[in-house]
């Protein structure tokens, strides 16, 4: 191994630390904005934007209680695993026009795998808590996972397939490639409608993936008193809240990368560091807008569904919408 190779590895490690740090801060900050926006929509004052930070620091100094029935090493290990898995996804996501840190080492299929890890972690943690509420929550989380996977994969496959038709020579599942070639520019009018349907699918999968109302059945405050998280306290709960914040960023970034990978630097004839700066800012604005639609707005405008209704909603109507989108894109390509 050469010195250059070592240097690259070192740079990647430093980059990873910076991205993890920024991702966590951004996640908590956006969580604060989400709460503030929800409060404004409900005509409340709402907590200050720094509230998630304060919550996090408060939880960190609180006592960490492990219930008697729990399996301690699983119980304590799961929050760390969840957070790590979530942060890892960040390394595969493009930010503005910066290509992903680990670009070339994994693609969107890996991201889908990684996305299931936090959910599996929570299921394991729930079962390890030894509380009936957490048990019910874990069962529900498993059902949820099985439900939203199909529409999510449909969306990704459709975009990948379309790209592979247009650019057969590229690695179509790489996010850098997807980011460089927005879907909207590649399709005709029929495909445009299809892509729109796929966008709707992803927008509805997002709150499910993040366990937000109306799909927050695994946590369901009024039914299960927090469900999966009912026995977690102190540091472990803080890690879960971090993971949740980062996961919000991840899911929203995924929507941005798949559907809105546009940059604005070239409009102002900027280059170099300015281009990166303005694109990153634009990226943050896109994140905010999409988070508002996918998380905040849906959250304040609906009641919680029951688990059978959730899995029905994902399996039947949403899968149909997703498959319809896929077939429209296919039709569009074949007809051209």
């Amino acid at each position: 191994m050469t010195i250059e190779g070592l240097l690259i590895i070192l740079l990647k490690i430093i980059g990873a630390v910076i991205i993890a740090f920024l991702g966590v801060i951004l996640g908590l900050f956006y969580k604060g904005i989400d709460r503030k926006l929800a409060a404004k929509m409900q005509a409340r004052v709402g907590p200050p934007i720094r509230q998630p930070f304060m919550d996090f620091f408060k939880l960190m100094i609180k006592e960490n209680i492990v219930p008697e029935n729990a399996v301690p090493w699983i119980f304590n290990g799961v929050p760390v695993m969840t957070l790590v898995a979530t942060i890892t996804i960040l390394f595969y996501l493009p930010i503005g026009n910066i290509s992903p840190l680990l670009s070339g080492y994994g693609d969107i299929v890996l991201i889908i795998y990684l996305l299931t890890l936090p959910a599996i972690g929570m299921v394991v943690g729930g079962f390890a808590s030894g509380s009936p509420y957490a048990n019910v929550g874990a069962q529900r989380e498993m059902v949820m996972m099985m439900s939203y996977e199909l529409p999510l994969v449909t969306t990704v496959i459709a975009i990948g397939w379309k790209l592979s038709q247009v650019y057969p020579q590229l690695n179509v599942f790489s996010l850098a490639v997807i980011n460089a070639h927005p879907i909207w520019g590649l399709v005709g009018p029929l495909g445009f409608v299809g892509a729109l349907l796929l966008l709707i699918t992803l927008a509805i999968v997002t709150p499910g993936e993040l366990s937000k109302i109306p799909f927050d059945v695994p946590e369901a405050e009024t039914e299960l008193a927090g469900g999966l998280l009912v026995e977690y306290s102190g540091r472990n709960l803080a890690l879960f809240s971090l993971a949740d914040a980062v996961k919000t960023i991840v899911m929203v970034s995924l929507t941005v990368a798949l559907f809105f990978p546009y940059n604005i630097a070239h409009l102002f004839d900027l280059s170099g560091i300015f281009a990166i700066g303005i694109d990153s800012l634009f990226f943050l604005v896109k994140l905010l807008l999409i988070m508002f639609v996918e998380v905040t707005f849906i959250r304040v405008a609906a009641a919680r569904l029951k688990i059978d209704q959730v899995s029905y909603a994902y399996w039947v109507p949403l899968s149909i919408i997703g498959l319809l989108g896929l077939s429209l894109i296919v039709l569009d390509t074949i007809m051209i």
């Binding site: 409900q42 109302i213 109306p214 369901a220 009024t222 304040v300 405008a301 609906a302 919680r304």
Partner: peptide, 8 residues
């Protein structure tokens, strides 16, 4: 409404 998770 709160029991249904509809806090708005």
């Amino acid at each position: 409404a709160h029991e249904l998770g509809f806090d708005s």
